[in-house]
Amino acid sequence: MLSLLNSFRIVALLEGVSYLLLLFLATPIKHFGNDPTYVKLLGMPHGILFLAYIVMAIMVSQEKKWNTRTLLIVLAASIIPFGTFYIEKKYLNPRKK
């Protein structure tokens, strides 16, 4: 069974990928190609992953005893393109302390 941290790492990766697909693939196709299909297909899964990321970040912060600043950085990363990948390297990498 996956630990909370490993589950969060997976959700963070999926959330980051879905955000990039939504921003750099689906949105341009919608606006330049007048085809909202991809936004509709990617929007709901991304929204669910975003909410899961937020909830799991709070749970992991309690488990790892992060201070408020660290939690806010992890939460803010979810709205910055490539942010969750930074969080993976900086805060979630199991090889780091």
Rank of each mutant, 00 (worst) to 15 (best):
A77G: 08
F82D: 00
H31G: 01
R69F: 12
I54T: 11
L71T: 07
K30A: 04
F8N: 08
L25M: 09
Y91P: 02
E15Y: 09
V11I: 15
P81H: 10
G33A: 06
T37N: 08
S3L: 07
I54G: 08
V60C: 08
L23I: 10
K90R: 15
T70D: 12
K90A: 13
L22G: 02
N6C: 01
L20E: 11
V39N: 03
Y86K: 06
V11W: 13
Y38N: 00
L49R: 06
A12I: 08
S18R: 00
L20V: 14
P28K: 05
M44Y: 14
V17Y: 08
A52R: 02
I79P: 00
V55F: 15
T84F: 02
W66V: 04
P36V: 06
F82Q: 01
T68M: 15
L22N: 03
L71C: 09
M56Y: 14
G47C: 11
G83V: 01
L13I: 15
Y86H: 06
K30Y: 05
G47R: 08
G83H: 02
Y86L: 11
K64D: 01
G47D: 10
I79C: 04
K65F: 08
I80P: 05
H31R: 10
I87E: 00
P45T: 12
K97Y: 08
H46L: 14
L49V: 11
N67A: 03
V39I: 06
I54K: 07
G47Y: 11
P36I: 08
V39D: 03
V11C: 13
G83P: 02
H46Q: 14
I54H: 07
T37I: 04
